[in-house]
Write a protein that binds this DNA or RNA. Structure first.
Lengths: 221, 221, 221, 221
DNA sequence: AATGAATGAGCGTTCATTCAT
DNA sequence: CATGAATGAACGCTCATTCAT
């Protein structure tokens, strides 16, 4: 499919072709199960050329992670307009996120599934991206707390946990939306906003849920 | 550790040793990167014995998934007392969940990370467990809605999305709690309850977040 | 099938059961492809018992060859009555041979196919049997020559070649009769007698076929 | 022998080297006992190259069978000149056959011994060749019958049995000639012609050997 | 700019064989 | 008399990687 043998292409183009093939293969097979043969064939080049341009399998996978992480964060960043309110920014970011992951399922599989299974050199790459997103969300939460005329006296770790939960829910919903047919990016974003925003809001108004210490019974929500 | 060469053990015991070693190795290396040699050595037996008792690498991994999935669901089930309120059940379940994942990080890695990267024979195994948990959470949400004297007129898909988001947040917090030093299971559970319970509550009271259609501005939480 | 677990049998019986299973397995799978596990299971005993009674796979195979070679030669010997004429003796021997190979196809496969593919320790065993049969046939040919009032001035090597050809034709016809449905032992024997006897006869009357030396044309038979 | 490490050969050449080594190894060890390591080493290449060119052990063996079967049938075909009489054609074919098997003993072992011990994928290959030869011989027999001004009223199965016997005798004599020192191809062919031709001739003149039904005595040849 | 030819190292799997009971 | 438990050694096959052109 599309394997029209067009030789003698400039290096930058060839590299992108290789990365495309690699992302597809890594995303579907996983890092270990993907073979350089398959990637080279899918890219329409010979194996030595892959090694000439991207030094090793490890470097190739790292390049995939970097490219796709940049593309994802860029997509989210481009979807958010800075002037608007915190909830609107969060909504826009989530829409961009779900749209991008839906359009690039292999890339999302690389970032979310495959890269995390091999901690040594790869998880650090994707962790950087994730932390960037978590920081962005954290800042939104803090901004929302300010917007609610409340001192952001939420302890830092608590905010970190909330952001982690929010991002985790988003990741899980991305998989869910990709797997379940007929779930659009907007629907996924709506679900998450409904789930999270009120909780965050009441949290900021001081109405936090308290754990039942020593066998106390808790009330309904 | 404890690799005293104690020969001639009954089969059932040896099998558990092998599964222990396999869970550890699979959880840390991933399915493909884990070698049967390493597993056998860690189990303190020779490779042929592993093949004699657990027919193949695939079967071994499946056995790991099954055992750990059963252990996790059993731990959650044992932590929940049926008579109590929905929020208390959810809290207890989350505590049990975070406690179990914290005590069995390799098992959690197998279930959450490794099993999902090889869809063909394994994802189905873990998907069954996940659906069981999602169903449990869904039932809690519906129960909470009833408890709030509200007709559970939430559309089915909406509830499914909420449960997915909740479980995803829990999974993500489990990783976070395992990685971040000093975060206890109770703290993770508290964070998630804070994050989710109010949101669910306001949702049930009809105050749902509405997406900004065509450029409408939304309000602060 | 027939695996009624009858423990504690006398050694001689067990050995025969093992040899039965071994002949069947070796005959169908070949020496290398047959596994001791399969043989032990088919014999209804545990593997160590096989090693206790028949020391190794090699010895087991040798024992199979010996038993079946003896059975075959005994069957042929029993079919031949010494007082009769040479052609009748040959006919009776062939009938006995084809009958035995048809009734014991696995044994025949062991002797004719499997044992010959591994020259080092096994071919010698079966070669002994074969030479015994070739000698018997040779003696018949010589007797027939005497019976025809001819001096057996056939050179020794020529007689050896004839016997070899006759035995080879018989072996090939045994396979053919086993494979082709509806070919009885008598039919195979008749075919071979028709094929060979007249040739031998005219040979002894001095009418031998002469090779076309240096481009000479030969006549029709 | 000749194991000068000459690297970088074109694929076609390497493939023939590999097939040479494989035929030798398979012919001497048998299919199961031959190891790919040994074949690769004998071919002077590394194992992966063998797998790159000839996909598997099974395919390699099949390729050996095909090449050697084609070579053998071609040698026989090339030795027979169509215009001559049936006996001359048979003689020429036998000479070519015995010459080829004597010059390529390993190839003959592959075809005659090794390929027949593993029926599932291999026997069909060699059976095709054998049937081709049997058909050729059958046609010669029928032609000879016509040449003798006799209606070929031999029943079809009878002719098939005769051809089978003739081919079997030839195969056996090939082994015998290969094993016994000082037996030339012409001598083997002469022996077989003497053995078979007169028998066929008298058969066609209606003088067929009749089996002794119910204890009748038979006469000398 | 690009490739055909080639390999060292390792993995999943199997098997004949033994030990302790 | 008989076996459950266990292994050293090897085999078929694959893969990331390089060299020579």
């Amino acid at each position: 499919m599309g394997s029209v043998k067009t030789r003698r292409m400039p290096r930058a183009v060839r590299e992108q072709q290789m990365l495309d093939a690699a992302v597809k293969t890594f995303g579907q097979r996983g890092y270990m199960a993907a073979s350089m043969d398959e990637i080279a064939e899918l890219a329409g080049v010979s194996k030595p050329l892959v090694y000439l341009y991207l030094n090793s399998k490890e470097d190739l996978f790292t390049a995939c992670i970097r490219r796709e992480a940049a593309a994802l964060t860029e997509a989210v960043r481009a979807g958010v307009r800075p002037g608007l309110g915190a909830d609107r920014q969060l909504w826009d970011g989530l829409c961009a996120f779900f749209t991008h992951t839906a359009r690039n399922p292999d890339a999302w599989a690389v970032l979310h599934l495959q890269a995390r299974t091999h901690p040594e050199p790869f998880a650090a790459e994707v962790a950087a991206m994730r932390e960037e997103i978590v920081a962005f969300v954290t800042q939104l939460i803090v901004a929302a707390a300010r917007q609610a005329h409340r001192d952001p006296d939420l302890p830092e770790r608590e905010v970190a946990g909330l952001a982690e939960a929010l991002v985790g829910a988003a990741e899980s919903l991305a998989d869910w939306a990709n797997t379940t047919p007929g779930v659009s990016a907007r629907q996924a974003a709506t679900t998450l906003m409904n789930f999270a925003w009120a909780g965050l809001g009441s949290l900021m108004e001081g109405r936090s849920w308290s754990p039942p210490d020593h066998g106390r019974e808790s009330s309904a929500p």
